[in-house]
Amino acid sequence: MSAIGFTDARIMLRRNIRHAMRYPMIAYLIALPVVFLLLFVYVFGGTMGAGLPTSGTDSYLQYVVPGVLLLTVAGGVTGPAISVAQDLSEGIITRFRTMNIARSAVLGGHVLGNLIQLLLATVAVTLIAVLMGFRAPAGPWGWLGAAALLALVSYALCWLGVAFGVYARGVESASNLPMPIMILPLLGSGFVPTESMPSWMQWFADHQPFTPFIETLRSLLFGTPVGSNAWLSLAWIVVIGVGGWLWARRLYERKPLRTA
């Protein structure tokens, strides 16, 4: 990216952060996973924990936190989808397109602005989990790896969210489109081991991207061997991120102008 391109992206980022400060969506990003965490640990935890090798509410807490963190990240698809759709409905994007601005700056600004909020939300949810008694035996490298994984998944999902935002016909549909993505962490190994599911569901759970994400995160945090899940996760990150980026860019170039 040229120097001008970098400057433009920074200006757009500042604009998106200003939007975020004025209309804080970050509260929703934190609230939903925290409600799930409380619900699953304190309401279902006793029963759900019974199905684990070491039963009990506390061991279920240790089991469910990686899933809840991925749930947080998945919720982040909505942010860029809404912010981009809002821009497109405002007509300001039409103005940007008549200006000599680096092409990548507009969508890039949305990705970065939402990514920052999402990472802050993930840190907040992690802190709440720790307050509830979550203890991961991982050393600094394990935590660093976990942070890197969450950041990469977040970045990829933000591009997908931007693509949803450009694809959507309005702000409302932009906030509904990411729904399937937000449900995916629940249909993986985040809340119960996939072996406990009916076989067709287990097949789906084992082959969708969030299961390797969750398993890799769990291994990094608990110091168990990561195995093939790491490569699988990286592959999914590239597929989602590059796919979202290409889709978003293509749609953005072709998006008909707002006329009425």
């Binding site: 433009d8 200006i11 604009r15 200003r18 939007h19 004025r22 209309y23 809002q86 405002e90 007509g91 300001i92 039409t94 103005r95 940007f96 008549t98 200006m99 601005i101 707002r258 006329t259």
Partner: peptide, 25 residues
């Protein structure tokens, strides 16, 4: 410069911030 039929302003910013955004860009 283009001013179209439909307002091309950033509704979440103030008037001054909108102008400043243009000056920055």
């Amino acid at each position: 410069g283009l001013t179209g039929q439909f307002s091309a302003v950033d509704g979440l910013l103030t008037g001054e911030e909108n102008l400043q955004l243009m000056a920055d860009l």
